[in-house]
Design a protein around this nucleic acid. Structure first.
Length: 308
DNA sequence: AATATCGGAACATAAACTAG
DNA sequence: TAGTTTATGTTCCGATATTT
């Protein structure tokens, strides 16, 4: 069913299509081993010894975006063409950046301290990466030492900020912390799905696993999480909608892989599991009961251990 | 084997900040 | 005000799961 991939003008179709280590991406384009595979977007010669950076298109089409697949500037993009969905290949809309986000004082780098001019030398700190040791931006410390603060104990998103829930700006429900729902509308009211035509998302809960692993735990505004929920709903196949969302880490399907088997079962997470929470109260109360049982069992175990 | 899913690293860049 | 730094939003790689 291999269709001739569509290459936009300027795209260098790699010739060794069937080369052993050349996988064909589902966009129909060969996936060369990175970094060579970046095609025309290669900004650096591989001969330079510097790995070329991965080049991204400015705007992926909605289909590729949903599938987390490589897109192209061309419309319809090769992937959509391949899948015969060229008619729905439209640019996704980008969310506008938040404004007014205050920051702490910048740390300036000394001139001699490496090449500051290149982005590579700036060692960008990623969302998930731990703060540098000398970090002055530690959210907790920073708050304390900040010469400014957000008004009235609000965080940057205009939500109440306190030591307990800090950095979980969107978390409102301490019990169902993983369940985003009640708070879907953030202070900025922006995270209601990034695409107008995808309104259904607004009411659909983000996937639990995205929550679990997100440094923005509970932050519904995370575009990626939005995207995920978006994906699952608009992936076009009903099976995805019916299928319970997979756990973050695949759990071996053993007979005792019930919630009760895990004393550390997170009610919030569990509640969100599969149905992304909020689907019904019944589920929630069942889970609450489960956790009660677990706790009781644990207590019993503890007392036994103590008595021995 | 092909296709779908999705976590998270890589990338891009707007906006806040700062030095001159 | 130009240059720097950081935060935020997007893209898509690659591992894994599912389907055919």
């Amino acid at each position: 069913m291999q269709q001739m991939p569509y290459y936009p003008p300027g795209y260098q179709a790699p010739s060794p299509y069937g080369s052993s280590h050349l996988m064909t991406a589902d966009n129909g384009l060969p996936q060369l081993p990175h970094p060579v595979g970046v095609g025309e977007s290669n900004t650096q010669s591989p001969a330079s010894g510097q790995p070329a950076k991965r080049k991204q298109v400015k705007n992926a089409c909605t289909n590729c975006q949903k599938a987390c697949k490589k897109c192209d500037e061309a419309r319809p993009c090769p992937r959509c063409v391949k899948y015969g969905i060229a008619d729905t290949c439209v640019n996704s809309t980008r969310k506008e950046r938040k404004k007014g986000v205050k920051r702490g004082p910048y740390k300036r780098r000394q001139k001699g301290d490496g090449d500051v001019s290149t982005p590579e030398a700036r060692t960008p700190r990623r969302k998930n990466s731990p703060e540098p040791a000398t970090n002055q931006y530690d959210p907790q410390n920073m708050r304390a030492s900040m010469p400014f603060s957000y008004p009235n104990g609000l965080n940057q998103y205009g939500q109440p900020y306190d030591a307990y829930s800090q950095y979980q700006p969107y978390m409102v429900n301490p019990v169902y912390s993983g369940m985003p729902y009640p708070i879907v509308s953030g202070a900025d009211g922006q995270h209601q799905g990034q695409q107008g035509q995808h309104q259904p998302y607004a009411a659909h809960p983000p996937l639990p696993h995205a929550q679990q692993h997100s440094p923005y735990n509970g932050y519904q505004g995370s575009p990626h999480q939005q995207n995920r929920s978006l994906q699952s709903i608009h992936s076009g196949d009903a099976k995805e909608e019916q299928k319970p969302h997979q756990p973050l880490t695949p759990i071996p399907s053993t007979s005792n892989s019930s919630a009760a088997s895990s004393p550390h079962v997170n009610v919030g997470t569990a509640g969100a599991n599969g149905h992304a929470g909020g689907e019904n109260d019944e589920e929630g109360s069942r889970l609450a009961r489960l956790s009660q049982l677990c706790r009781a069992a644990l207590d019993q175990t503890d007392t036994k251990v103590e008595s021995t």
